[in-house]
Simulated assay, not measured.
Amino acid sequence: MKIFSKDKALARLSLSNPIHFLALGFGSGMMAKAPGTFGTLAAIPIYLLMAPLSIEWYLGLTLLSVILGFYICHVAAKDMGVHDHGAIVWDELAGLLITMIAAPAGWVWIVIGFTLFRFFDILKPWPIRWLDAKVKGGFGIMIDDVLAGLFSLACLQGLAYYFA
């Protein structure tokens, strides 16, 4: 059973390069199957570290993850020679952080946020699919996951309003 991908484009990246390390979600994007899901899972410890912060700090760090993500994803894609390679999962990390803005505390809400984000990231309803297909570069890699995160955030907050 193959655990890590042996993809030739992925072989052009190195975990010792800080940009590549971040783009690959601390190595989680190197999984042979479902790298986006593993990248989203890798975001959970980051979320847990950020959850106790004030909303201002949480929003600031989340925005920073998005802005840095444009660059991180651009560099990794350029170094791989492939636009939006599945191993680039920094966008999933940023998307989950967006999803979890002001989320209620508890593992149930983390699981719900994770599930909602993966749902929107995989299904890509309009306009997410359109942006994914039309926008290129680091911005293009990030924007569909940012929007999936915003869709997930709206759903999570709606659920929290009625059930938390």
Rank of each mutant, 00 (worst) to 15 (best):
P104C: 07
W109P: 03
W90Q: 05
L131M: 15
D132K: 06
A94Q: 09
I110F: 03
G106K: 08
I128H: 00
F114M: 08
L96R: 06
D121Q: 09
V108I: 15
I98N: 00
G113D: 03
I98G: 00
D132T: 07
D121N: 12
T115I: 14
G95L: 02
T99W: 07
I128K: 00
I98S: 01
G137D: 07
L96M: 10
W109V: 06
G113Y: 02
V89A: 10
V108Y: 13
W90D: 05
V89F: 09
L97C: 09
F119R: 02
D132C: 08
L96K: 07
A133F: 08
W126E: 10
A102L: 10
L96F: 15
G138Y: 02
I110Q: 04
D91G: 11
T115W: 03
G138N: 05
K124S: 00
A133T: 14
D121F: 01
D132V: 08
W126A: 13
K136Y: 11
K136F: 10
G138I: 05
K136G: 04
D91P: 11
L116P: 01
I101V: 15
I98D: 00
L131V: 13
G106H: 09
P104V: 09
A102G: 11
D132G: 09
D132R: 05
K134D: 08
V108N: 13
I122A: 15
L116D: 02
E92R: 12
A133K: 15
L116N: 03
W90H: 09
I122R: 12
D91A: 13
R129G: 00
I98M: 05
G106A: 10
L93M: 14
G106V: 08
V135A: 06
V135Q: 06
V108W: 13
F120T: 00
G106T: 09
I101Q: 03
F117G: 00
V108S: 14
W90F: 13
K124L: 02
W130Q: 14
L97F: 07
V108G: 08
K136N: 14
